[in-house]
Simulated assay, not measured.
Amino acid sequence: MSGEGFDPVAFLEQAVPIASNDDVSEMRAFLVETLEANGVEATVDDAGNTLASKGAADPERHLVLNTHIDTVSPHVPYEREDGVIHGRGSCDAKGPLAALLAAFFAADPVPEARVTLAVTPDEEVLSTGADALDLDGDLYIVGEPTNLDVCTAAKGRFEGTITLRGVAAHAAEPDSGVNAIDALAPVLDVIRSFDDDRDAHPDLGAPTLTPTLVDGGANSNQVPAECQLVVDRRSVPPETADDFRSTLQAALEAAVPDDVEVEFALTERPTPFLEAFATDPDHELVTTVADASQNAGGNGAVRPFTAATEASYFSPAPVVVFGPGVLADEDGAVAHAEREYVQTADVRSAAAALTEAVASLVH
């Protein structure tokens, strides 16, 4: 599997059986071995990112190819049938990785250009790898299962907890206390109406705000002094996590009774949330990948991606999401599901499309 003879499907047949849900070490070692077998020097940085580059050290154009090697649990064993590879990571995202590798190995950038492969170790959890990257790229292609469509935008995903604090009292004398659970009524009204005056994004549609978990009260015969409600936010540009936090806090303070203390805090995490991103559909990056996809057998469709990705770490630089496989099909979930699979023909088509696109972008 060296030189110009790199076969993305053969790579995938070896990669999918390697469990990378709890520990990516074995998969990363296989990736480094593959890069070196194809004549490319690879490094692993302190954050666990696998990095390799071709071309100018100080380029006028720098194209970055990115995806991840970690997978969700549990590991699903590899199976192969005619034209289909089953197993955890087959479409999310070892299939896209195989296609990106084919394009990277084939790339021959002009003297003033550079192409970098950056493969992260924990996209499915906290994105500490992506957060540590400092690539200064001009263009980014992120490998995810898009069914060979070119995805130019995705909603962000934030999470936080609304805490309501009242005063405990005997339930026989409820007016002697302040009921924190009762204050959920205006909170839920705020959540339902939060986006009523916001315009929908032209590509991503309207943002959503959804209550997902609730906890409150200590005893069944006591007026509850505290209540927590967790909310899930799917954002659209230009909203940031800080914008969302401050706007929701203000709306809650205006709606909740004065005798109830209300606080909204984003869930603590060591890396930034995956925020929304949007690339101009008319940008050269988009049209180049779309044309190449169509030439390779895809339909050349340009659309939003329906899941959050590490593409948000590279925005506002132009970024697209592209790869073989699907998140779901007519029978249900595919990525993150026990039936995860990818069509080998789609892997080859994605490899051909990316090879053409990369060649066009760095020549």
Rank of each mutant, 00 (worst) to 15 (best):
277 F>K: 00
204 L>W: 13
240 T>E: 03
214 V>I: 15
39 G>V: 04
83 G>A: 09
306 T>N: 12
189 D>L: 13
269 R>W: 08
109 P>F: 05
108 D>F: 10
279 T>D: 06
298 G>P: 04
331 D>M: 05
162 I>L: 07
317 A>G: 06
321 V>Y: 07
20 S>T: 12
262 V>W: 01
91 C>T: 11
170 H>N: 02
313 Y>I: 01
18 I>P: 13
113 A>R: 11
257 P>H: 03
108 D>A: 14
185 A>R: 15
302 V>E: 01
304 P>R: 02
336 H>T: 10
15 A>H: 07
165 R>I: 13
341 Y>V: 02
195 D>N: 09
47 A>K: 06
106 A>Y: 14
349 S>P: 00
180 A>D: 09
197 D>Q: 06
30 F>Y: 15
356 E>I: 01
336 H>Y: 12
42 A>H: 01
89 G>Q: 00
166 G>R: 03
363 H>I: 13
319 V>P: 11
9 V>F: 03
192 R>C: 11
210 T>L: 10
316 P>V: 02
23 D>Q: 02
200 A>P: 12
345 A>K: 12
111 P>Y: 05
360 S>M: 06
271 T>I: 04
6 F>K: 01
200 A>K: 05
302 V>D: 03
203 D>F: 14
159 E>Y: 13
265 A>P: 09
154 A>C: 08
192 R>D: 14
259 D>E: 12
124 E>G: 04
332 G>Q: 02
143 G>Y: 03
189 D>P: 15
316 P>C: 04
197 D>I: 03
156 G>Q: 01
110 V>D: 13
247 T>H: 15
12 L>D: 04
337 A>E: 00
138 D>T: 08
52 A>H: 03
147 N>M: 02
306 T>Y: 10
20 S>E: 06
268 E>D: 11
166 G>P: 11
245 R>F: 08
277 F>R: 01
81 E>V: 12
60 E>F: 10
336 H>C: 13
313 Y>M: 04
145 P>S: 06
343 Q>S: 07
220 S>G: 14
330 E>T: 09
111 P>K: 08
232 D>Q: 06
264 F>G: 04
31 L>P: 07
151 C>A: 11
302 V>N: 02
62 H>V: 00
252 L>A: 09
160 G>K: 01
275 E>L: 05
304 P>I: 09
176 S>L: 10
233 R>V: 10
95 G>N: 00
206 A>N: 13
62 H>P: 08
153 A>F: 07
257 P>N: 07
250 A>G: 12
9 V>A: 04
29 A>H: 13
286 V>Q: 00
231 V>G: 13
99 A>E: 00
138 D>C: 09
58 D>W: 05
159 E>M: 09
357 A>W: 05
160 G>A: 04
188 L>D: 03
96 P>C: 02
105 F>D: 03
46 D>C: 09
306 T>E: 14
290 A>E: 05
35 L>K: 08
162 I>Y: 08
4 E>H: 13
72 V>R: 06
90 S>P: 11
215 D>M: 08
237 P>R: 05
206 A>P: 14
199 D>V: 06
302 V>F: 06
331 D>N: 14
339 R>W: 03
354 L>P: 07
223 V>D: 05
64 V>S: 09
270 P>T: 09
247 T>W: 12
182 D>T: 12
198 R>E: 08
250 A>C: 09
137 G>E: 04
27 M>S: 09
348 R>N: 01
308 A>G: 15
333 A>K: 13
